[in-house]
Simulated assay, not measured.
Amino acid sequence: MTVERNDTKTKILDAAEGFIVQGGYNAFSFRDIAEAVGIKSASVHYHYPTKADLVSSVMVRYTADFSSQLPNPNSEKIAANVLLNGFINGFKTKIVEQRNMSLCTMLTSNKSVLPESVCVELAAFYQLILDWLTQVFVRLDKIDKEEAFMQASQLLACLHGASILVQGTNQPDFFDRALSGWKARAV
């Protein structure tokens, strides 16, 4: 019985994530989730009493999954430039090849309507990325953490800006143009 419950929760989270990526926080209702999963709306409420609970859970899972895919930024087995290049290419895959905005970009664009619990999880995700990139830049450029954090912030802003530009213009080559300087450093 527990397995079925977990499968249902996973399906609910998957459906919610898909709706958010396609249209943001207000792009779905519990009824939409129920229909997508093939359950009753009351079942969605059973697992996630509020939309804030549901979207916060989506973010917690997304952050955990993302974190598990990040290589150790201090591992001597992987060069810092390879880590940086891999991160940029991973972002490109999502934005250009899959033609999707990232979950966090969509939620950030809706920040004014997000419940506080979702904002907390969103901030935790961005902090995870900034901390990881900071460690990569410390290794790559042999600089202190403050300067590395500034570079991490600039790269993340460039990645998000490039993703908006690509989606807004429907011109995928803008991604490579916007990131050309960062990619050159990752060679």
Score class of each variant (00 low, 15 high):
Cys104Lys: 10
Leu103Val: 10
Ser56Cys: 00
Leu133Gly: 01
Leu133Asn: 01
Ile78Asp: 09
Cys119Arg: 12
Thr50Ile: 07
Ser57Lys: 13
Arg139Tyr: 02
Ala36Asp: 04
Asn74Gln: 04
Asn72Met: 04
Gln98Phe: 14
Pro71Tyr: 08
Thr93Asp: 02
Glu35Gly: 10
Asn89His: 04
Leu159Ser: 07
Ser112Val: 06
Asp141Lys: 08
Met101Ala: 00
Lys77Met: 11
Phe149Asn: 10
Phe125Gly: 11
Asn85Thr: 09
Ala162Trp: 03
Ser109Leu: 13
Lys51Asn: 07
Phe28Thr: 03
Phe125Asp: 13
Met150Ala: 05
Asn26Tyr: 04
Ile143Val: 09
Ala157Asn: 15
Cys119Pro: 04
Asn110Leu: 02
Ala52Trp: 03
Thr50Ala: 05
Asp53Glu: 12
Ala27Cys: 07
Met59Phe: 08
Ser109Met: 13
Pro115Lys: 03
Gly161Ala: 00
Ile95Gly: 01
Lys145Asn: 03
Gly90Tyr: 13
Val120Asp: 15
Ile78Ala: 05
Leu103Thr: 12
Leu83Arg: 03
Ala64Asp: 09
Arg99Tyr: 05
Cys119Met: 12
Leu83His: 09
Ser57Tyr: 11
Asp65Tyr: 05
Phe137Asp: 05
Ser56Asp: 01
Ala124Val: 05
Ala148Leu: 09
Lys92Pro: 03
Phe125Arg: 05
Pro71Lys: 11
Gln135Ser: 14
Ser57Gly: 12
Lys142Asn: 08
Tyr48Cys: 08
His45Pro: 01
Phe149Gln: 11
Val113Gln: 01
Gln98Ala: 09
Ile39Glu: 07
Val55Ala: 14
Lys111Asp: 02
His160Arg: 07
Asp32Ser: 14
Asn81Ala: 02
Ser68His: 00
Thr134Arg: 06
Ile78Asn: 10
Asp141Phe: 02
Ala148Glu: 08
Leu156Met: 15
Leu155Gly: 09
Phe149Lys: 15
Leu165Trp: 04
Tyr25Val: 10
Glu116Ala: 11
Ala52Gln: 00
Lys111Ala: 10
Asn74Gly: 07
Phe87Thr: 12
Met150Trp: 01
Asn26Leu: 12
Thr63Cys: 08
Ser67Met: 04
Phe30Lys: 04
Asp141Ile: 02
Leu140Val: 06
Gln127Tyr: 01
Tyr25Ser: 10
Asn89Thr: 02
Asp141Tyr: 01
Val55Trp: 11
Val113Ala: 08
Ile33Pro: 05
Phe66Pro: 00
Gly24Arg: 05
Asn89Cys: 04
Met106Ile: 02
Ala80Ile: 13
Phe149Thr: 10
Ala34Cys: 08
Gln135Cys: 08
Asn89Gly: 06
Ile33Thr: 09
